[in-house]
Lab assay of single mutants.
Amino acid sequence: MTFKLIINGKTLKGETTTEAVDAATAEKVFKQYANDNGLDGEWTYDDATKTFTITE
């Protein structure tokens, strides 16, 4: 399955995708991506669209 991450950061904005077997796996990938890029914010997830959002 394809999951999307929408980034609404103070300095970084955009989106990225990952292929994962489930939402929990995708969340780990996206949280590592956010950590690697210095993002810290509030996370939301929409199961209907398989989309995570981080807002700083």
Rank of each mutant, 00 (worst) to 15 (best):
Glu19Thr: 12
Leu5Gly: 01
Lys50Val: 04
Asn35Pro: 01
Ile7Thr: 04
Leu12Gln: 12
Tyr45Leu: 02
Val29Ser: 06
Ile54Tyr: 03
Ala48Leu: 12
Ala26Glu: 00
Glu19Ile: 15
Lys13Phe: 10
Leu12Ala: 10
Glu19Phe: 13
Gly14Gln: 13
Tyr45Asp: 00
Leu5Asn: 01
Thr16Phe: 13
Ala24Gly: 09
Lys13Asp: 06
Ala20His: 03
Glu15Gly: 07
Asp47Met: 10
Ala23Ile: 11
Phe52Arg: 00
Gly38Asn: 12
Glu15Tyr: 14
Glu27His: 12
Glu19Leu: 13
Ala24Ser: 07
Gly14Phe: 14
Asn35Ser: 13
Ala23Asp: 04
Val29Arg: 09
Ile6Phe: 06
Thr51Gly: 02
Phe3Leu: 01
Glu15Met: 12
Thr49Cys: 04
Gly9Lys: 08
Lys4Asn: 05
Thr11Asn: 12
Ile6Ala: 04
Thr55Trp: 10
Gly14Met: 15
Met1Glu: 11
Phe52His: 02
Trp43Ala: 01
Glu15Ile: 10
Ala48Arg: 12
Ile54Gly: 01
Asp40Asn: 12
Ile7Val: 09
Tyr45Glu: 01
Thr18Tyr: 11
Thr25Tyr: 08
Glu27Arg: 08
Lys28Arg: 11
Ala34His: 01
Asn8Thr: 07
Gly41Tyr: 04
Ile6Thr: 05
Ala23Phe: 13
Asn8Leu: 14
Asp46Ser: 06
Gly38Trp: 06
Lys10Ile: 13
Ala34Glu: 02
Thr17Ile: 10
Tyr45Arg: 02
Ala23Trp: 10
Glu42Ser: 10
Glu56Pro: 10
Asp36Asn: 09
Val21Tyr: 15
Lys50Ile: 03
Thr53Glu: 05
Gly14Tyr: 15
Phe30Arg: 00
Ala23Gln: 10
Gly41Gln: 02
Phe3Ala: 01
Tyr45Lys: 01
Ala48Met: 13
Lys28Trp: 10
Gly38Ser: 09
Trp43Ile: 05
Asp36Phe: 08
Ile54Gln: 02
Ala34Cys: 08
Glu15Pro: 04
Val21Arg: 07
Ile7Ala: 04
Thr16Ile: 15
Thr25Cys: 06
Ala48Trp: 08
Thr51Pro: 00
Thr11Asp: 11
Asn37Val: 13
Lys50Glu: 03
Gly14Trp: 15
Gly41Phe: 04
Asn37Pro: 01
Thr2Cys: 07
Thr2Phe: 13
Ala20Ile: 02
Ala24Thr: 13
Glu56Tyr: 10
Phe3Met: 02
Thr18Met: 11
Thr25Gly: 12
Lys10Arg: 14
Phe30Ala: 01
Ala34Pro: 01
Asp47Pro: 14
Asp22Glu: 04
Tyr33Glu: 02
Tyr33Gly: 01
Tyr33Pro: 00
Thr25Asn: 08
Met1Val: 14
Asp40Leu: 15
Lys10Cys: 13
Lys50Thr: 04
Thr51Glu: 04
Phe3Trp: 07
Thr17Phe: 15
Thr51Tyr: 03
Ile6Asp: 03
Asp22Leu: 04
Lys50Leu: 10
Thr55Val: 06
Lys4Gln: 05
Asn8Lys: 12
Phe52Tyr: 05
Thr25Gln: 11
Ile54Glu: 00
Asp36Thr: 09
Thr44His: 11
Lys4Cys: 06
Trp43Gly: 01
Gly14Asp: 08
Thr16His: 14
Asn35Cys: 09
Thr25Glu: 13
Thr55Tyr: 08
Gln32Leu: 09
Thr55Ala: 06
Thr16Lys: 12
Glu42Ile: 14
Trp43Lys: 00
Leu5Met: 05
Ala34Lys: 02
Thr49Leu: 09
Glu15His: 11
Lys10Asp: 07
Met1Pro: 14
Ala20Cys: 07
Thr11Ile: 14
Glu15Gln: 13
Glu19Trp: 14
Lys31Phe: 06
Thr2His: 10
Gln32Cys: 05
Tyr33Ala: 03
Gly38Ile: 04
Leu39Gln: 03
Phe30His: 01
Asn8Glu: 11
Asp22Ala: 03
Thr44Cys: 06
Asp46Pro: 00
Thr55Leu: 05
Thr17Leu: 12
Asp22Gln: 03
Lys50His: 12
Ala34Asp: 00
Ala34Val: 12
Ala26Asp: 00
Thr11Pro: 04
Tyr33Ser: 02
Asn8Trp: 15
Ile6Trp: 05
Ile7Gln: 02
Trp43Asp: 00
Asp46Gln: 05
Tyr45Pro: 00
Lys13Cys: 09
Ile7Pro: 01
Leu12Trp: 13
Thr51Arg: 03
Glu19Gly: 05
Thr53Tyr: 09
Thr53Ala: 05
Lys28Ser: 11
Phe30Ile: 01
Lys28Pro: 03
Ala23His: 09
Thr51Cys: 05
Lys10Glu: 07
Thr51Phe: 03
Ala24Leu: 12
Leu12Thr: 12
Ile7Phe: 15
Asp36Trp: 07
Thr49Lys: 07
Val29Met: 08
Gly14Leu: 14
Thr53Asn: 04
Thr2Trp: 15
Gly41Cys: 03
Phe52Leu: 01
Ala26Phe: 01
Tyr33Ile: 07
Thr44Gln: 11
Gln32Pro: 01
Thr49His: 08
Ile54Asn: 01
Leu5Thr: 01
Thr2Tyr: 11
Gln32Trp: 05
Glu27Leu: 15
Glu19Ala: 08
Thr2Asp: 06
Met1Trp: 15
Lys31Trp: 07
Val21Asn: 10
Glu42Met: 14
Lys10Ser: 07
Leu5Asp: 00
Asn35Thr: 14
Thr11Tyr: 12
Gln32His: 08
Thr2Leu: 13
Val21Trp: 13
Thr17Val: 10
Thr18Asn: 03
Ala20Trp: 02
Met1Arg: 08
Thr55Ile: 07
Ala20Asn: 03
Thr49Ala: 07
Leu39Tyr: 10
Gly9Trp: 08
Ile7Gly: 02
Asn35Glu: 13
Asp40Trp: 13
Lys13His: 12
Lys4Trp: 13
Thr53Met: 10
Ala23Lys: 14
Met1Asn: 11
Trp43Ser: 01
Asp36Ser: 09
Tyr33Asp: 02
Ala24His: 08
Val29Trp: 14
Trp43Asn: 00
Gln32Ile: 11
Thr55His: 08
Asn8Gly: 04
Asn8Ala: 09
Thr25Ser: 13
Thr53Val: 08
Lys31His: 08
Thr2Met: 13
Ala48Glu: 12
Thr25Lys: 06
Phe3Pro: 00
Gly41Glu: 01
Leu5Val: 03
Glu27Val: 06
Asp46Trp: 04
Leu12Lys: 08
Thr51Val: 07
Asp47Phe: 09
Asn37Gln: 13
Glu56Gly: 05
Asp36Met: 10
Asp40Tyr: 14
Glu19Ser: 10
Thr11Arg: 09
Thr44Trp: 06
Glu56Ala: 07
Phe3Arg: 00
Trp43Met: 09
Gly38Asp: 09
Thr49Asn: 12
Lys4His: 13
Gly38Met: 09
Leu39Cys: 04
Ala26Asn: 00
Lys50Phe: 11
Gly38Cys: 09
Val29Ile: 15
Thr2Ser: 06
Asn35Met: 15
Asp36Ile: 09
Thr53Gln: 05
Leu5Ser: 00
Tyr45Gly: 00
Ala34Ser: 05
Ala34Asn: 02
Thr51Asp: 01
Ile7Asp: 01
Leu5Ile: 03
Thr44Ala: 10
Asp36Lys: 11
Asp47Gln: 09
Ile7Lys: 02
Lys28Met: 14
Thr2Pro: 05
Glu56Asp: 08
Glu42Trp: 11
Thr55Phe: 08
Asn35Trp: 13
Val21Ser: 12
Thr17Ala: 08
Thr11His: 15
Ile6Pro: 00
Ile54Leu: 14
Thr2Gly: 05
Asn8Ser: 12
Gly41Thr: 02
Thr49Arg: 07
Thr17Asn: 06
Thr25Leu: 08
Phe30Lys: 00
Asp46Gly: 02
Ile7Tyr: 14
Tyr45Trp: 04
Thr53Ser: 06
Ile54Pro: 01
Ala20Gln: 12
Thr11Val: 09
Asp46Thr: 05
Phe3Cys: 01
Thr17Tyr: 14
Glu56Phe: 11
Lys31Asp: 02
Phe30Gln: 00
Thr25Arg: 07
Asp47Gly: 10
Ala24Tyr: 12
Tyr33Phe: 12
Lys10Thr: 13
Lys50Asn: 10
Thr18Ile: 15
Lys13Gly: 07
Glu15Ala: 10
Ala34Ile: 06
Tyr45Val: 02
